[in-house]
Design a protein around this nucleic acid. Sequence first.
DNA 1: CGCGCCCTTGACCAGACTCAATATTAGTGG
DNA 2: CCACTAATATTGAGTCTGGTCAAGGGCGCG
Lengths: 235, 235
Amino acid sequence: MAYKMPCAGGIAERLSDIVHDESAWTEFIRSGRAKKVSLAEHENVYFEGDRADRIYEVADGAVMLYKLLPDGRRQVVEILSGGGLFGLQAGELHDCSAETLVASTLHAADRRDVEAANELQSHITRCLLEQLQILHDHTVLLGRKNAFERVATFLMRFVPLRGGAGCLGPGPDADDRVILLAMTRQEIADYLGLTIETVSRIFSEMRRRNLVAVERHDRMRICDVCGICRLTGTH
Amino acid sequence: MAYKMPCAGGIAERLSDIVHDESAWTEFIRSGRAKKVSLAEHENVYFEGDRADRIYEVADGAVMLYKLLPDGRRQVVEILSGGGLFGLQAGELHDCSAETLVASTLHAADRRDVEAANELQSHITRCLLEQLQILHDHTVLLGRKNAFERVATFLMRFVPLRGGAGCLGPGPDADDRVILLAMTRQEIADYLGLTIETVSRIFSEMRRRNLVAVERHDRMRICDVCGICRLTGTH
DNA sequence: CGCGCCCTTGACCAGACTCAATATTAGTGG
DNA sequence: CCACTAATATTGAGTCTGGTCAAGGGCGCG
């Protein structure tokens, strides 16, 4: 069943962010109430079910949040990079496990300290709202997009200023971009709700169509950003 | 590929919520700075792309947030009922459309009023964190569960105190429960990332297995709550 | 009673998964 | 620097779940 968009042009308007003051947060980090933690690639920060008494900010690197089903199926639910907040929970326990994708440094703060500091709330709210919006998009990806569209959408995430509401277009030169995935095929599959084989096949198909060139397993050249963008299902 | 849970018993611990003071929010609503809005079944509150200058609380009824792809595919990303907050955005525009599932009354407040009121922030943060946790679970459902597990999981949402971390078990009597879906098959399908036909087939299969009895299209008796629960893939 | 809407059921099809074999890559030690 | 190994990625063949298309059923409402 196909629905009709109420007003096609509605979303075209640039999603210009409302001014956001994060100085209170920067100050909090600097003040020494947050410890710096350095982690290697694929180290875990905490597991689902652990007590949630610290919250984290990605200072450098990238972290994934994932959940496991008892039979071993895994779903990566969020990927966080610089500035992303995680570990804050409504309840007492972590609802996800957290693991670094690459070597990372985190700022770890005590939950009570953060909750007590009123001046931090607006920054936290902002971060949560951004996460929520990303999760909404990801829900559409998982619920309604096919494998090709999922991978194309995934690739577009690595190209800032392109594909979104205020996309700048291809520019005068060749429309290519080199991106660093920093994720294994398995991690990509678990993020996109696919299997490793399907992800691999889609990449191969994209290569055959000259949409991308795989320079190394985790290093790809998107030869035709606009071409990929048209295959995301979103435009 | 199957992963192994790090510590199977970890999540068993009851997710008892940390004390949460929402008196400031109640006061805000009562103060008259939030208008009461009454809407009929299937009326829309706003569309994706509209300016987001009001935020809403579901006082009574239920609301769904959904997104459309340009070719007409729809994904319901959230379902909110009493106490649920929606319409708050990181940017200037709504990232989803909102529509009532049943006749509902909402509290509508001006975004600026809410953002200015520091005493409301902790309530908002709490609501966002709960939404985030539900979306994480939904991500697992969409990314990793099959049709049967999706429908079973969906049904369990209507049975409070059962199926979750602190499930009370079947109790002494027959393990049945009558639930009111308040959604059409199409809405259920769009929420679970399935088609209307698949949802219908799964309900029929469940009926055949005496797991449920369809008393009316939107009114079902779950004959065996524990039986359904075992089929969610989560336990 | 009849119309329209929603739901159910069936037959068929296709996209993604599974299992298995092979190819690459990265890492290790000689 | 190269050989060897382990881990990761690719490719192929076959299967199956869930989608598509089409027909029929049930229910509420005028």
